[in-house]
């Protein structure tokens, strides 16, 4: 999706024509439409974002820092980073594998696989969490077995990682599949006919062709992994300093009347999101040529 926004399509509007063409609206209409979009964005995106930072800094910069270095907050930040560090690479590997299989090969049940990949998008995160409780909870299918062997999944880090992987499942694959399908398998066939092994072809031909789309997928996946609330809330058990991620910690602080601290941690999450966005924009700008080439490939 992100790749479509960049490069080539923007250039179509380049040729400047004098007078009104059939595809151009009157200037007043254009100004009105663009203005409307900005007002809408300002109201629904910028205003809440600004509000987060204003609220966070209401108690002054020292209160802001105190809220962030508080042990439970640090534990929440640490847990969020750990979960993302496990979930994102796992979904990267899965996403590439799935996209490769879907785009380059024909097999029975392919459309079923594509539908399954989208499942986490269509299921409410709360359900995703409950499913793991049903599977691994003390009263669940594997509960007694896990309990007998001293394995903790639900209300511990593994459960949070599992739930996060589930909700962020489709991001990388969704990003890669359309691009890889569009590119076709011509390059791979050429490489194979020149004697390259399957793995070498994948590593030296397929991967470089999709590296930008992969990066976008990973960035989006990471943003969601760090921000997930619903599914994680169900499997977390809310043990302070142990199984609370940043979004859960924000809710706790808010409920404890620590509004400034809640917004301080929330602002960190917002900063992570802004950083992700900035990184993406920077990469698009810096490597615009390479990205366009990938699309046109």
């Amino acid at each position: 999706m992100a790749a479509e926004l960049s490069g080539a399509p923007l250039r179509i509007s380049r040729p400047v024509r004098r007078g009104r063409s059939a595809t151009t609206e009157a200037p007043a209409v254009r100004v009105a439409l663009v203005g409307l979009v900005f007002v809408f964005l300002g109201f629904f995106l910028m205003l809440p974002l600004v509000a987060v930072f204003v609220e966070a800094l209401r108690g002054g910069i020292s209160a802001y820092l105190a809220a962030i270095v508080e042990p439970d907050a640090l534990a929440a930040i640490r847990l969020t980073l750990i979960v993302a560090a496990i979930a994102v690479p796992a979904n990267m590997v899965f996403g590439v594998a799935a996209a490769w299989a879907v785009a380059k090969f024909e097999f029975k049940g392919k459309s079923l696989l594509v539908t399954l990949i989208d499942l986490p998008f269509s299921v409410s995160p709360v359900i995703s969490g409950l499913v793991y409780v049903l599977l691994f909870g003390a009263q669940g299918f594997f509960g007694p077995f896990l309990d007998a062997h001293g394995v903790e999944i639900i209300f511990a880090v593994p459960g949070i990682v599992l739930a996060t992987i589930f909700v962020t499942f489709p991001f990388v694959a969704r990003e890669l599949i359309p691009l890889m399908q569009e590119q076709g398998s011509g390059d791979e066939e050429a490489a194979l006919s020149l004697g390259a092994s399957g793995f070498t072809t994948f590593l030296l031909v397929t991967l470089p062709n999709v590296k930008w789309a992969l990066l976008y997928g990973v960035l989006l996946c990471n943003a969601r992994a760090m921000g997930e609330f619903g599914a994680v809330s169900v499997v977390s058990g809310h043990i302070r300093g142990l199984t609370n991620t940043m979004p859960l910690h924000v809710e706790i602080l808010y409920n404890e009347y620590s509004f400034a601290a809640a917004f301080a941690v929330a602002s960190l999450l917002a900063l992570l999101a802004l950083f992700t966005l900035a990184l993406k924009t920077f990469l698009e700008w810096r490597f615009a040529g390479a990205i366009a080439a990938e699309r046109a490939h």
């Binding site: 409780v133 003390a138 209300f155 809310h238 043990i239 302070r240």
Partner: peptide
């Protein structure tokens, strides 16, 4: 001592589901 807080009924459910 670690704490877990939430609605009373929800917390009981979590202990039933294996919260230690």
């Amino acid at each position: 001592v670690r704490m877990s807080h939430g609605g009373s009924g929800k917390q009981a459910r979590a202990v039933i589901d294996g919260l230690k």
